[in-house]
Design a protein around this nucleic acid. Structure first.
Lengths: 191, 191
DNA sequence: CACAATCGCAAGCGGGTGCTTGCACGGGGG
DNA sequence: CCCCCGTGCAAGCACCCGCTTGCGATTGTG
């Protein structure tokens, strides 16, 4: 495979495990099966390499196939959507956790706008507004706040669960279903 | 003030900003206004120092005064409780974010059991069970999952908000109130 | 006063870090 | 055939890391 690609993959992998400081150009080279000099010849500096390696799979690993369109059963379709979302989050959890601990120190690595969770929250907001204008949900809630609430719950479950296991029920799918059930009831959607 | 205390405070401060690898014994000494040798004379090693410095304020900064007892208005008292919880979380946010990014690499720094969020979730679980047995809430929800949901929403809002600002409504208190309102409605508590 | 404890200062040790330089090798295209 | 481009290899530079040692100054206590 392409040498450049191999270096990028190794860099992203190591960054998830050990963060910016812990990721070594020597380590990246070893992991990619490449001489350290080659790394610098391709990317110039460690920072430029990590910016490209992380930026690409920060934008790419989002909620691509997660469409959200009313098909009659809000509970079922939102539960399915939430499970997909949580699955995607859990897949990116190590990267997100590491980024979360370093975004103050290295804000330049990733574009702050339009991150996948924010896009998903926006999509969810529109969906909730559709539910409301269709008369399925009650009228007196803030769609953006409500969307943020469900997103926050899914986000924390997907990201924090590994670190605080005694806070969550061990069955992930059941938990997600219950979250969505409570959430939709809270918006006045009959269950 | 006590030299030992000054070193511990400096170590905790630096750890929040730069993590385990980024925190330097030279930096701690400079920040504490102390010679680097003194740091080692007091704590022996960097790891022992950080373990003590972080362990203490990991257990200490929790939800101490946050009692939760039914006084008639579940919405108001749970909103107040949630605001206090979020405030405490936001105060510890840098530490929590850093810990979250490193708990796989340095699990020894902090006792994994009985963390403040887990204690709060337990307290909330009991409160919800009281609401249910008092007939205020409906009967068909899992109290532990429900508690985890609200805790997760508060947790993510308090911890992630700074890193994903476009996902949340800018008014924190209004957001928390709306979260709790939706949540209690979801449990069948009349609002 | 004598003693012990605590601290600062200067220096250093072995090792790791990002990054550079010089040179040799191999294979593909003119 | 030759040349050039991408790569490997060995070495090194200046710096930072955790941690240690030796010694002198200060301070409080018997």
């Amino acid at each position: 495979m392409d040498v450049r690609e191999e270096i990028l993959k190794a860099a992203a992998r190591l960054y998830c495990e050990t963060g910016f400081r812990g990721t070594t150009t020597r380590g990246i080279a070893r992991e990619a099966g490449v001489n350290e000099v080659t790394v610098f010849r391709h990317f110039g500096s460690k920072e430029a390499l990590l910016r490209e390696a992380i930026g690409r799979q920060w934008g790419g690993g989002g909620c691509g196939p997660l469409a959200l369109e009313s098909r009659g059963d809000p509970l079922a379709e939102l539960q399915e959507w939430a499970k997909g979302m949580t699955g995607g989050l859990r897949q990116m959890a190590p990267l997100i956790r590491t980024r979360l601990g370093e975004f103050e120190e290295h804000p330049e690595i990733v574009p702050p706008r339009g991150s996948p969770p924010a896009q998903a929250a926006e999509m969810l907001t529109r969906y909730l507004e559709e539910l409301r204008s269709a008369g399925v949900a009650r009228a007196d809630f803030d769609a953006r706040m409500a969307a943020a609430m469900l997103m926050a719950a899914l986000f924390a479950d997907g990201i924090v669960r590994d670190g605080l296991p005694d806070m969550f029920h061990e069955n992930i799918d059941s938990s997600i279903e219950e979250y969505v059930r409570i959430f939709l009831r809270g918006l006045g959607v009959a269950a």
